[in-house]
Write a protein that binds this DNA or RNA. Structure first.
Lengths: 343, 343
DNA sequence: ATAAATTGCTCAAACGTTTGCGCAATTTAT
DNA sequence: ATAAATTGCGCAAACGTTTGAGCAATTTAT
């Protein structure tokens, strides 16, 4: 409850009969460094508190050329996957005194570019981006020009910007193995966007697991092409109504899994009696479905945490220990959506 | 692809042999107002584009005392309900050239206060807050001191800050009526945080609907006390295992509904045969549950849109047409989770 | 007693904009 | 031909900080 708010350092200084310089130094915790007496220091600190003085960040930023703010760009914050990552990023930033500006790219590379420009003019100290589209040129340009940057969720071939993704290969391998261990031999994988790196990696994990179990190539079924409900629904319908339906489905993300559920329900089939299911992406509701669903969880908190750590390291210029690529472990949740087939 | 980036207006001006003043005026679209010739204007605009010049927002903010940035505070961005509102806010802000800073209060009034202070020092032009806790004093102080502000999701008695909430009363009334119309006579309402205004309003809608159908007071069951899964789960268990279980449950938010689902499944009951269910909060998965769930949807996009509109009106000082309280209609989704009871 | 070192503080420039005021040059009115 | 109005632009102050350089007063060393 500031008795009477003061608007700038000059007012505060003159009220105390102390120079602006000294006040500034105390406020910035440089009293020791500049040999300000304990007494003066206390006077300033008390007054600053009493009058609720806080430095004008415009002036400060102008002088220091930094904002203590980072920008985050995701395709869609309303997707719980990204929302949780953003949550974690914000939490971590708060700890380090950084604010976070947010932007939705809406799966549009042009928006991504515009947002970065906007962030640049806002003088963010760095950006974290979950990129969309097929090219990373615009990102490399900005990074190359000196903007601290971290990429999350997916990467691009040959990218030289620090990147944090889930271990998509490993997660998919484990999921597939889970099905195989239950003696499923004919498994359909419903994939998402073909060219995207997470998809590619997950497919690779799926195929490798299948082959390691000596499943004949014709029983390694891969279908679909979009990370959304419709695609999951249509593909499931097609698969399950076919002459030789798979005994299990591996959905490559949460939305696809919802589509599978819809199709299964519509065909009056049940899980896991008629068809088994495992899905990438754990969600709050996964455990509460009529048949609790087995999933591969991505460690969103960890992804956020590591990316902020890495970004801040770049910002403060610790060249040391910035890893170019880090892969975050996934975790399997075994529930009741997988039927154990007798040998 | 700026051939060679230029770092400030002075460099650009001297490169063109034009004064800084003129360049500034052109960049800010004040060429007409200050009688800059079309020719000079074009020269400047072309060069700005060519060299990728964008004004330093610190200097600009310092001079103009505004940031074209707003702050948003929600209890938890990882909650899809808030995530979607934030999504809408960001979209609307982008249209108006505003950036958005985000903060999580994590259901802690103190965090709320800290975030607002932080935002203030970052010189945001206004804030939108989904408040937590029981008091709004700190918000009223800041608003009273001149900070443009909009409250969303819930309000406080006698609050004089513009507020946007869903029509919680109406939504609850409609939900309850839906059950009553299907001849349910014994309905349990599992509520969330007792003191919070959305909860109070929903309860009021529930009770009013029940009374208008002449349901005896002893069959108007209200239980629970937290907006989370556990509470929904425990209350459902208690209700359904009781001697005279209700024929229907009204869950006051999505998490409570998940708890109900869990309890129902655990007791090997089914929806709607054994118990009917309707829930506040539509979610992507609502339609994909084994029994697609009837819900009351809150119009998150509209809430975001209106709040930004209102906030910007405050920022630019249009005293006119800022409504102090707006209530956004909800929408019922009728699905298969309600059994029609024969008369 | 004097020189050197230390302590405690201040001066003033700089960061990159925006804008009120003013001044030539040109055009229009008389 | 002269006065008045208009056009096109620039000067310089101001916004609120931070910080290198410097200076007087005090303390310590000789």
């Amino acid at each position: 409850m500031a008795s009477q708010s003061i608007k700038n350092i000059k007012e505060l200084a003159s009220k105390l009969n102390i120079s602006v310089t000294t006040v500034s130094r105390v406020i910035n915790g440089k009293a020791r460094q500049y040999r300000i007496s304990k007494k003066t220091e206390k006077t300033v600190l008390d007054a600053a508190d009493k009058y609720g003085y806080a430095p004008n960040q415009f002036a400060r930023g102008l002088k220091l050329d930094k904002s203590e703010t980072i920008g985050v760009i995701v395709p869609d914050i309303s997707n719980p996957f990204f929302a949780e990552i953003v949550m974690s990023i914000e939490k971590e930033c708060k700890k380090n005194g950084f604010a976070v500006l947010i932007g939705n790219s809406g799966d549009d590379t042009e928006q991504e570019r515009i947002l970065i420009d906007h962030f640049k003019s806002k003088k963010v100290d760095g950006v974290i981006v979950a990129p969309v589209g097929i090219t990373s040129k615009h990102l490399e340009e900005v990074f190359g020009a000196g903007m601290p940057m971290v990429i999350i969720d997916r990467t691009f071939p040959g990218l030289k910007i620090p990147t944090i993704t889930s271990d998509n290969y490993g997660g998919a391998y484990v999921a597939t193995k889970q099905l195989l261990d239950n003696n499923h031999k004919k498994i359909a994988c419903i994939q998402g966007l073909n060219e995207s790196q997470p998809n590619t990696e997950r497919i690779r994990g799926f195929i490798d697991a299948m082959r390691s179990f000596k499943i004949p190539e014709e029983d390694i079924i891969i279908t679909g092409g979009q990370f959304n409900i419709e695609s999951g629904y249509c593909q499931s319908l097609r698969l399950l109504k076919g002459s030789k339906p798979p005994t299990a489905i591996f959905a490559l993300n949460n939305l696809i899994a919802l589509g599978v559920l819809q199709a299964v329900s519509e065909l009056s089939l049940s899980i896991p009696e008629d068809v088994s299911l495992i899905s990438f992406d754990e969600q709050t509701y996964s455990a509460f479905l009529n048949t609790p669903m087995s999933t591969i969880e991505q460690n969103k908190e960890e992804i956020g945490k590591i990316s902020v750590g890495n970004l801040i390291a770049q910002i403060v210029g610790m060249e040391i220990d910035i890893e170019l690529f880090v892969s975050v472990e996934t975790k399997i949740h075994e529930r009741q959506s997988i039927k154990k087939i007798k040998k």
